[in-house]
Design a protein around this nucleic acid. Structure first.
Lengths: 402, 402
DNA sequence: GCTATTTCGTCATGCCGATTTACAAATTAG
DNA sequence: CTAATTTGTAAATCGGCATGACGAAATAGC
């Protein structure tokens, strides 16, 4: 017994279930599903060895999952190995679907993702939402949702839930937008204005972006810092494959980390916050540009053209980001830092100075900084996938519907 | 179904066990124990209602735990309520004991804690360890351990494990001290030099201090930042009742968070790290004092006497701490910040400026800052309790020994 | 004081779910 | 073509919790 004595934070899917036989069954259903999801088509025997149950037990679990429409039998495998070939199992492409939606400053987007993680339907509507009241915007969004759901149903899917990404702070009830500065929304309960026939989850777009990064990659890293920028600079902290939300749900406010303790005052009451150096408005001002509508696009365009003022502004922003991230990295020791969301478009001009600063301030190898492959569509995908994950984490809750 | 769809990080004791019937049994044994620990003497029926099992099931679990020597029957309760009184159950005072040890710069300490959490035996040896090689120090420590274990055994306890708190970085194997600057130890495997008959865990003293704060209080908060100071400044991040360790186990390096990006250079390669403003050496220098042996005591003494230079140095250190903590609080949104370890002795002079700075930089109510009740003995208690927690989290592993 | 009521702990029974054991089916190795 | 190997399923078994009933020990009401 030399293993670590105390498990600090054991984790795994569906652990909120009671420790009774039904709970055990439900967790084992989830484990079968996760094994199949993680390692492609798998035979019953392969699943059994992966999750530590016997073939017989897995057989009954698989039967139940097939009857529920969550698993599909692909037919016999054709391998070169000795012995009877197994029958390949895969997540169903005709079962529940996760509906993801995104409310952006300049667009609305909706998509449907099946259990396998492939996007089966999508709809986008360009148009500025800044300052529009929630009612009309959500009416438009509802329209898009109806279209996407209809298309998904046409392919044999049924919607298991709706997750909405918003550019702002969301209360812990996962329904109410506390503050969305870009939209000028305050204390709005989206549940009242969206289809009531779907279970609803609302969350910050940065959080969903981080979850997308976590779920759509190769499974590593499980500990990272996901930085994205809206009007301010938000970060999501992923620890051991889960989102760190904080007591009030406000974790990740990287924009108000002090970078220059006696710098210019900030709306938050502090001085020299990162936002004053690397926030959208600050960078535009430093570059000598007027606040425009497509702000990020404008910056990226000018920088690509070679505008030296813009490039310098972005370099300086990268340096400031590096200072703030040095603090965060020292505190959290993440495996990596990922630049996501709108920031990914500016990465070519931010990254060099950011990496420099981080390396300069680190003894030994610096924390690697990468750019999200998903870019601006991370939040939408993360939202849709969060619904899918919920199904995979506890298949019993949706099995009845099938 | 309006509950949050996805559980980000479900947690609980002993969740690494397989989802089989034996695993279920083991987890339920742990849940009984935790219920009794958390809510004092409890009848079988009370436990059953707490953990959601039936009285019959709890009866068999309790029988097993009593046979193993982990629970004790105190006899019939004498309540004013109607109905047959239950038989009160309590954690055993004659079962397994957690042995905690601390290697400090100027002392060695060992204690034994029983399942109830009361310290049953202790031994301290004053004497400077700075620069001494590990061999002799650990020989002395072994001697203390033998004494404490013998005394505990005299009271009917048997040692379930040994946890050692060291002032330095510990590798993830929980045995090897990577770097302990105060002792001048490097890459030392303590397992080779300590009693081999006890399961061993080694960890940083700041981590154990934070765990003590978590376990010995009233159970709240479960999310906080525990700041302690050795030669540098270490912090431990507690999230949802568990320690955040980081990929390499280096999380919590608050001392190297930049507070003044163009400040003086630091050994870590950075500039203006917190350590340059609030580290022990920096404060001594700022106060115009020579590095003495009992550094903290010296500072506290002078400050109490009214030495204005010392007080100013501590005020400034508090301000710098406030800047660094502003960043940490923005990133993590903890419920509170706790000053522990040696820092608690200096709190009266650090706190005012620290709180000021934090409040100045925060919109809305600032994160509350408190001082650990445990003070300098937190790490030792945390170490001993970590062994006890391991037993409570999985009683089956030790039950055989009884 | 006596009885009804309430609660506790335990026992016998049953159910659920995973394991064990056995076997037929389907493939490869020789 | 036979032996070996692996898969999937069926029957029997076992472990563990739930259910329901019961005696025990207290209070409440008469």
């Amino acid at each position: 017994m030399t293993a670590p004595l105390h498990e600090d934070r054991p984790a795994g899917p569906g652990r909120a279930l009671p420790d009774t036989q039904q709970g055990m069954r439900r967790r084992n259903l989830a484990r079968v599903l996760h094994a199949v999801r993680a390692e492609g088509p798998l035979s019953r025997a392969a699943v059994a060895s992966r999750i530590g149950l016997t073939r017989a037990a897995v057989s009954t679990l698989v039967d139940e999952l097939i009857r529920s429409g969550l698993l599909e039998e692909l037919g016999p495998e054709r391998p070169g190995r000795v012995g009877r070939p197994g029958s390949a199992l895969a997540l169903s492409g005709r079962g529940p679907a996760g509906i993801g939606a995104e409310i952006g400053v300049d667009h609305l987007a909706v998509c449907a993702v099946d259990l396998r993680g492939t996007t089966r339907s999508r709809a986008i509507r360009q148009g500025l939402n800044r300052g529009r009241s929630p009612g009309p915007v959500l009416a438009e969004l509802t329209e898009l949702i109806r279209r996407v759901v209809a298309e998904a149903e046409g392919e044999g899917l049924w919607p298991a839930g709706l997750a909405v990404a918003v550019p702002g702070l969301v209360a812990r009830d996962a329904r109410t937008v506390v503050r969305a500065p870009n939209l000028d929304w305050h204390d709005t309960d989206l549940g009242d204005l969206l289809p009531a026939d779907l279970p609803l989850t609302v969350d910050n777009e940065a959080n969903f972006g981080a979850l997308a990064e976590l779920w759509l990659g190769d499974g590593t890293p499980r500990d990272f810092l996901h930085v994205s920028a809206e009007i301010g600079i938000g970060a999501a902290v992923v620890v051991d494959g889960g989102l760190l939300r904080g007591t009030r749900g406000f974790a990740g406010e990287l924009g108000h980390v002090p970078v220059q303790p006696d710098g210019p005052g900030c709306a938050c009451g502090g001085r020299g916050c990162l936002e004053q150096y690397a926030g959208e408005e600050a960078v535009l001002r430093a570059a000598g540009l007027e606040p425009d509508e497509d702000r990020v696009g404008l910056l990226a365009g000018r920088a690509a053209e070679g505008d030296e003022d813009v490039r310098r502004a972005l370099r300086d922003a990268g340096t400031a980001l590096g200072v703030a991230l040095t603090g965060a990295v020292n505190l959290l020791d993440p495996e990596s830092v990922v630049l996501g969301g709108e920031l990914s478009g500016l990465a070519p001009w931010l990254l060099p100075s950011l990496r420099d600063e981080l390396a300069r301030r680190t003894a030994g190898p610096a924390c690697p900084v990468s750019v999200s492959r998903l870019g601006p569509q991370g939040p939408l995908l993360g939202a849709a996938h969060s619904v899918v994950r919920a199904v995979l984490d506890d298949p019993a809750t949706v099995a009845e519907r099938a």
